[in-house]
């Protein structure tokens, strides 16, 4: 393990903590300074000026579901690609062409989804 490895990632974690604390402080200051007069009318969800219909959390058509699945496929591919790009120029031709085949196979997935009409937002 490289020297300073732990310190590097500790910095990332500490940045997260500092960010959380800073925003917490902002909320705290706002809670002290801002007025606080809740009323029934203010608590109603905004629906273009008419009384809101209930059941916001009723069943929804989750359209991004298929996009999320496609995204998952390509994100996993990216995880494979990142180590590959660092070594492929020094490796043999098989390493290079194997990854090209992999990319083409996944592109075929996009073409399939395209032909199926999944990529249209309805």
């Amino acid at each position: 393990m490289r020297e300073g490895y732990v310190a590097d990632w500790a910095a990332a974690v500490l940045a997260g903590v500092v960010g959380l604390l800073a925003i917490g402080l902002l909320f705290l200051v706002s809670a002290v300074l801002a007025p606080r007069r809740p009323s029934a009318e203010k608590g109603i969800p905004y629906e273009s000026g008419i009384r809101p219909a209930p059941y916001t959390w009723s069943q929804l058509h989750v359209r991004y579901y298929l996009f999320a699945i496609l995204f998952l496929v390509f994100d996993v591919e990216a995880v494979f690609l990142f180590p590959w790009v660092l070594v492929f120029a020094k490796s043999g031709a098989i390493v290079f062409y194997e990854m090209l085949v992999f990319i083409v196979v996944l592109l075929f997935g996009v073409v399939y989804a395209w032909r199926k009409g999944v990529l249209q937002w309805r």
């Binding site: 200051v29 809670a31 300074l33 801002a34 007025p35 608590g43 109603i44 969800p45 916001t56």
Partner: peptide
């Protein structure tokens, strides 16, 4: 923004 009321909807 800092001194504005920070509303949370009832639901």
């Amino acid at each position: 923004l800092l001194v504005k009321e920070d509303l949370v909807p009832t639901w």
